[in-house]
Simulated assay, not measured.
Amino acid sequence: MRIQGVLVCLYFYLMFPTNIIGLWWAVGSPLVMDPNSICRKTRRLAGKQRAICRKEPEIVEEVAKGAKIALLECQYQFRYRRWNCTTAKRSISKILRRDIRESSFVYAVTAAGVVFAVTEACSTGHLLQCTCKNNIRDIATDGEWEWGGCGDNVEFGYQKSREFMDARKRKKRRGDVTTLIRLHNNEAGRLAVTRHMRKECKCHGLSGSCTLKTCWRKMPRFRHVGDRLKGKFDGSAKVISSNDGKHLLPEGDTIKPPTKEDLVYSQESPNFCKRSKRWGSLGTRGRECDPTSMGVGGCDLLCCGRGYSKTEVTVRENCKCQFRWCCDVICETCVSVRTVYRCS
């Protein structure tokens, strides 16, 4: 129940950031994952979003799946950081209100998640309005293989992600640096999928030989997308709006202008060491850390110099499992003691 509520909070904030608090309790039930409920709960849909809700409700279902994929990936990528992509409403809603590095990643990975979910639904036949991709035979090969099979129709996933994720923000006035930043990060997330397609092949021939090999294009694994966006987060650029309000420029003259695949932000992040209602920081007190690590996740950095405590935790788990015909698995219960370090 909790994870579904958080997903809808994330979804509605990304779509309609000015109205998230009022929507939180209204949509905090499992029913909101139904596309019809999502479309019915908000009256602030932009034209493209309204058209998709009316004509393609199954697309909205894939948008919700994409948000779930994105949230899980965010939590994986930030699991050792001071802000760990927590599902607490009082944190993520405040984070997404600001144009900081952490929000740039959330917007980008969510746009990527929507591309991924919609494209995957095309390839598996769950969406009637699209199919897999099989019209790239005119692209040159090295002569040892040829295009064939049925690749991922990532162009369709890109299109729907752009229509749904960018629709509201494209109606904002020109010169709004927040709009420019969020549109840029949305696009960076989509490009992390579309520009890094992989080739997958299958051999054909007698007795397992590979006299003929056909290949098709597949999306990168989403963990690889998350890794790529996390790298962009680590090297993200601080930007300002150009004088005409149409472009983003690096804040410093010596900084290289960001590419379309880079993440950008305009506000410095807090250190997230202490609890702060203003910033949505929950602090790191009580977080588990690794005293042997000198990097992110190590007790020195994660605990912000406050020190840490050591406790012994009893762990019970199945072990020495045996299969007995037919059809039982019999296991013993093993007890072990694990040392846990937590920030003070």
Score class of each variant (00 low, 15 high):
134 N>L: 00
160 K>Y: 15
249 L>T: 09
191 L>C: 03
135 N>Q: 05
228 R>N: 11
141 T>Y: 01
198 R>S: 04
245 G>S: 13
214 T>F: 01
156 F>R: 09
226 G>W: 04
161 S>V: 05
202 K>N: 05
215 C>P: 09
176 D>C: 14
164 F>H: 07
238 K>P: 02
126 H>I: 09
166 D>Q: 11
155 E>D: 06
149 G>T: 01
234 D>I: 09
191 L>R: 15
165 M>W: 08
155 E>N: 06
136 I>C: 01
234 D>R: 14
151 G>W: 01
251 E>K: 12
148 G>N: 06
176 D>E: 13
139 I>N: 12
202 K>C: 02
249 L>Y: 05
154 V>N: 01
154 V>D: 02
194 T>S: 11
152 D>H: 13
155 E>C: 00
187 E>S: 04
139 I>E: 10
121 A>C: 10
118 V>W: 02
130 C>H: 07
235 G>P: 01
153 N>I: 01
170 R>H: 08
166 D>M: 05
200 E>I: 12
139 I>C: 03
135 N>I: 12
219 M>T: 00
190 R>Q: 09
135 N>F: 05
130 C>M: 05
131 T>A: 03
190 R>T: 11
238 K>F: 00
143 G>R: 00
249 L>H: 08
196 H>W: 12
163 E>D: 14
138 D>C: 08
235 G>H: 14
149 G>V: 03
222 F>S: 06
128 L>C: 12
242 S>D: 11
158 Y>E: 12
189 G>Q: 05
234 D>G: 03
136 I>N: 08
246 K>Q: 14
226 G>V: 07
220 P>A: 11
165 M>R: 11
241 S>H: 02
144 E>W: 06
168 R>M: 13
149 G>H: 02
144 E>G: 15
135 N>K: 08
248 L>A: 12
186 N>L: 03
192 A>K: 05
249 L>M: 15
194 T>I: 09
239 V>P: 02
196 H>Y: 12
129 Q>G: 03
134 N>E: 03
204 H>Y: 14
208 G>Y: 05
172 K>P: 00
164 F>G: 02
197 M>C: 02
165 M>S: 07
142 D>H: 08
143 G>F: 02
180 L>K: 06
199 K>S: 00
117 A>S: 15
237 A>H: 06
242 S>K: 10
170 R>C: 05
196 H>I: 00
141 T>P: 08
116 F>L: 04
150 C>Y: 02
185 N>C: 03
246 K>A: 15
231 G>E: 14
191 L>W: 06
159 Q>D: 10
160 K>F: 15
150 C>N: 04
197 M>Y: 00
130 C>S: 04
215 C>Y: 06
222 F>E: 03
180 L>H: 09
234 D>V: 12
168 R>I: 06
148 G>M: 02
190 R>G: 02
198 R>T: 08
247 H>C: 07
238 K>Y: 00
239 V>T: 01
165 M>P: 05
162 R>I: 08
159 Q>K: 15
